[in-house]
C-alpha cells in the first residue's frame, strides 16, 4: 500500500494504472473475506431457531398475509384490473429488502469497531457484506412471490409469467446498487452521529407510506405524485410491476431512470465513505 503511494509520483499514467491495479488486487484479496462474512451472517441468523432457513420463506409470507387481509378486506383497497395481492407483494418484497439491508448496513461499521481497531481490513466490506447477505434473503422471498403469482394468476385478473420476466433481474440489480450506496452513506453518518439509528427508524416509517406499496400513485394529487417520483424505490417497484402485473415492456425512460438513480446514489455513497473512512477511528 505504501509502496504504491511512493511510486505514484513517478508518472501520472503509471499512477493511475497502479491505482486501478491496487483496487483490483485489494478486492480480489478480500473477496474471500466478503464471502465468509456473508455466510457467517447466514449461519448465525437461524442457528438457534427450530425452523431455521424456512423462516426466510415463512416470514415474508406471513407478513404479506397480514398486510393482504388488512388492506384488501378491512380497508377494502383494490385496483381495477389488477391482481391486488401480487401488486402488494411486489412492493413489499422490494421495500423490505431496502429497509432491512439499509438498516443493517448502517450499523455494520459501528458494530465492527472492535475489529477495525485491531487489524487492517477495508472498511467498506462490512456495509457491503450486509447488503449482499440481505440480498440472498431477497432472492428467497421471490419464491413466495412467484408462488402467489402462479396460484392467483388465473382469476379475472391474469398475470402470466412471460419472457419479459427475464428483465426483472435488472430491477433487482438497481435496487441492490442503490441500497449499497445508501448503506455507505448511512454507515458513515452513523459513525459520527449515533443518533442516526433513531432518526433513520423514523425515516423508514415515513418512507413506508411515501412509497406506493399498498396504494397506487395515481390515487393522489398530481403534485404529491411528482414528489413521490423522486424516490428511486418507486421506479424500481414500478419497473417490476409493469412486467409482472401488466406483462408490458417498461419504457426506455424507466430503464434509464432506474439505472441512473442507482448509479448516482452508489457513486455518492462511495465518495462520502472514502472521504471519511480515515476519520472513523477517532469516533470509536
Amino acid at each position: 500500500m505504501a509502496y504504491s503511494r511512493m511510486e505514484c509520483k513517478k508518472g501520472n499514467e503509471r499512477a493511475i494504472e497502479m491505482y486501478i491495479k491496487n483496487i483490483f488486487n485489494n478486492f480480489r484479496k478480500y473477496s474471500f473475506l466478503l464471502k465468509q462474512l456473508v455466510s457467517r451472517d447466514f449461519k448465525v441468523k437461524y442457528k438457534r431457531s427450530v425452523l431455521g432457513v424456512v423462516w426466510s420463506l415463512l416470514y415474508p409470507v406471513l407478513m404479506m398475509c397480514v398486510m393482504a387481509v388488512v388492506f384488501s378486506n378491512v380497508f377494502r383497497f383494490s385496483m381495477p384490473g389488477v391482481n391486488y395481492l401480487v401488486y402488494l407483494m411486489t412492493g413489499l418484497t422490494f421495500f423490505n429488502y431496502y429497509s432491512e439491508a439499509s438498516n443493517s448496513a448502517m450499523s455494520a461499521v459501528v458494530a465492527n469497531f472492535s475489529l477495525l481497531n485491531k487489524i487492517y481490513i477495508p472498511k467498506y466490506i462490512f456495509p457491503l457484506s450486509k447488503c449482499l447477505f440481505v440480498g440472498i434473503n431477497f432472492l428467497l422471498t421471490l419464491i413466495p412471490l412467484y408462488g402467489v403469482i402462479i396460484l392467483t394468476g388465473s382469476g379475472e385478473t391474469k398475470c402470466h409469467i412471460t419472457w419479459l420476466h427475464l428483465l426483472l433481474p435488472y430491477s433487482y440489480l438497481c435496487l441492490l446498487i442503490f441500497t449499497i450506496g445508501v448503506g455507505f452513506i448511512l454507515s458513515t453518518i452513523s459513525v459520527f452521529l449515533r443518533d442516526m439509528f433513531y432518526i433513520y427508524g423514523i425515516v423508514i416509517t415515513i418512507m413506508t407510506y411515501f412509497t406506493p406499496i399498498m396504494y397506487d400513485i395515481s390515487m393522489l394529487a398530481p403534485w404529491i405524485q411528482n414528489v413521490l417520483k423522486l424516490n428511486p424505490l418507486y421506479h424500481y417497484i414500478t419497473f417490476a410491476r409493469t412486467i409482472i402485473l401488466y406483462g408490458e415492456m417498461p419504457s426506455v425512460t424507466r430503464f434509464l431512470i432506474c439505472g441512473g438513480s442507482a448509479l448516482i446514489v452508489f457513486v455518492i455513497g462511495i465518495v462520502v465513505f472514502k472521504k471519511n473512512q480515515d476519520k472513523f477511528i477517532y469516533y470509536m
Binding site: Q36, R40, K43, V44, R48, L115, K118
Partner: peptide
C-alpha cells in the same frame, strides 16, 4: 495485536478458523 478479534461466538471452531483466517487476509 489482539488474538481472536475476528471470532464469532455462535460459529463452531471449523467455521471460525475460516472466518478468522479471512479476516487476517488469507
Amino acid at each position: 495485536i489482539e488474538l481472536g478479534a475476528g471470532f464469532d461466538l455462535e460459529l463452531n471452531a471449523r467455521e471460525n478458523i475460516y472466518l478468522n483466517g479471512a479476516v487476517m487476509g488469507y
